[in-house]
Design a protein around this nucleic acid. Sequence first.
DNA 1: CAGTATCCCCGGTGATACTG
DNA 2: CAGTATCACCGGGGATACTG
Lengths: 156, 156
Amino acid sequence: MTTLSAAERRAAERIAYDAYLAACPARKLLDRISDKWVSLVLTALADGPRRQSDLARFLAGASQKMLTQTLRALERDGIVDRTVTPTVPIRVDYALTDLGRSLLPVIAAIKGWAESHLAEVECAQLAYDQANREPDAGRRSPGPARDQLAAVRNTG
Amino acid sequence: MTTLSAAERRAAERIAYDAYLAACPARKLLDRISDKWVSLVLTALADGPRRQSDLARFLAGASQKMLTQTLRALERDGIVDRTVTPTVPIRVDYALTDLGRSLLPVIAAIKGWAESHLAEVECAQLAYDQANREPDAGRRSPGPARDQLAAVRNTG
DNA sequence: CAGTATCCCCGGTGATACTG
DNA sequence: CAGTATCACCGGGGATACTG
């Protein structure tokens, strides 16, 4: 049975590749900062420390669970610093560590590219969508119409 | 009924925040490049064009569906260029556009930070995990033990 | 106020089979 | 070879209620 089925080969390759990815530093970081709330927390803390309730107001879209979870992960990573003040109503402050601050330029780079090039991207999207707007107009399926995925077969 | 329940207020805030995020360029970009395969495709194409089958080999971990889906999204964004050669066995080549190439430095920045700082992160993680290794050793719940979530209450 | 545990839903992702 | 459609699974993420 040296002849593995194509499916088996593929599965093996997937596993190996997964392992490779798991070891890739850039990927780890990307996984980190791509978390929906991470970059937002980072920018929220860029100006200075904030307490949890403050962050919660600032990041109005985050559930408390997500907020805590994100902050916790960041704390574990040494990106943010968590300070508990056991007063009567407990008070917890979060601040960026040096490591966390060193990450800000990276965020800035991302932001920078986004602000200078995203217009082009959206332009390209429009053009693309137009080019694939069901050449034989008329019967536009009124239903869900996922994306124009069905319309992709190149018109040439 | 000016008095909205806290839940209602929160829901409203979430919606507003979602809208805000949806408009945020940096967020859009982040959503883009944080897609599991995007950065990998980008680096795979950094050296030059490749055909789909080539990419499929290179990105062994990606299912064909994901590969196509990713490439399609990238094409729509004007990041990659798709060239179909309708020979007998069809041939499709993908290449970075100028826009796509302009994104490489951003990826490089991420990679750079990761390679120079990730050691610190992992160090911090170790320290953190150690600090929260159930102070009262002994009864280490053998079960799932999600993370040490239960052990967080600051020890002192 | 800060954090945790529980439940549940939705969407992303993979596997498979089919078209051209 | 390249792409699409369908199905099924799993985990992330939100809502809620409870503790200290």
